[in-house]
């Protein structure tokens, strides 16, 4: 069964590591839903967080192949683990009219999103939260006419020390 998997790849900060990882997935025919590469508290270590839609068997193969890369320190598929805090960030531009403005602002309040810009015909809002919350936010704003949005892709951290 094809499911969404979030994979955290901890790597040594070497030139081209992102290309190695994305290249490996492309070479074996896997699609990446989202990828974030970012520094960590240790300047030598980067974390790359991938979201991939694949079967469990393929994910096993992907994680093994990722582990095989010389610069990879650790690979964890957190999809079936609940001890991870997973977040996503979105900036979204939605159309407004004098008639719909109040309703849109209400939604923003309910979701505890932050208004960044308010113009006569549109507004820009940012929101951080669990992926499901972001999805729901988009869904509820859709009828008002979403003009553009950009999502960060998932990032995650274990709850344990």
């Amino acid at each position: 069964m094809i499911e969404k998997h979030t994979i955290i790849v901890t790597v040594t900060n070497r030139v081209g590591i992102l290309a190695r990882i994305t290249g490996l997935l492309a070479q074996r025919g896997y699609n990446i839903e989202s990828a974030i590469a970012a520094p960590t508290e240790d300047p030598d270590i980067y974390k790359i967080i991938l979201v991939v839609m694949e079967t469990d068997e393929n994910i096993e193969q992907i994680t093994k192949q990722l582990n095989k890369l010389i610069d990879t320190i650790k690979v964890i598929d957190i999809s079936h683990r609940d001890n991870y805090i997973v977040r996503e960030y979105i900036i979204l531009k939605v159309g407004i009219t004098p008639r719909t403005r109040a309703e849109v602002l209400d939604l923003i309040r309910v979701f505890e999103a932050r208004l960044i810009d308010l113009a006569t015909d549109h507004l820009i809002v940012e929101l951080t939260g669990h992926v499901r919350k972001i999805d729901r936010f988009i869904e509820l704003l859709k009828p008002f006419g979403i003009k553009e949005f950009v999502r960060s892709g998932e990032f995650a951290m274990t709850e344990y020390n």
Partner: peptide, 16 residues
Amino acid sequence: MVGLTRSICKHNYLVK
């Protein structure tokens, strides 16, 4: 060269 050989070698380097 690093890009070309990425998928066909065990590891590769460009010496900066």
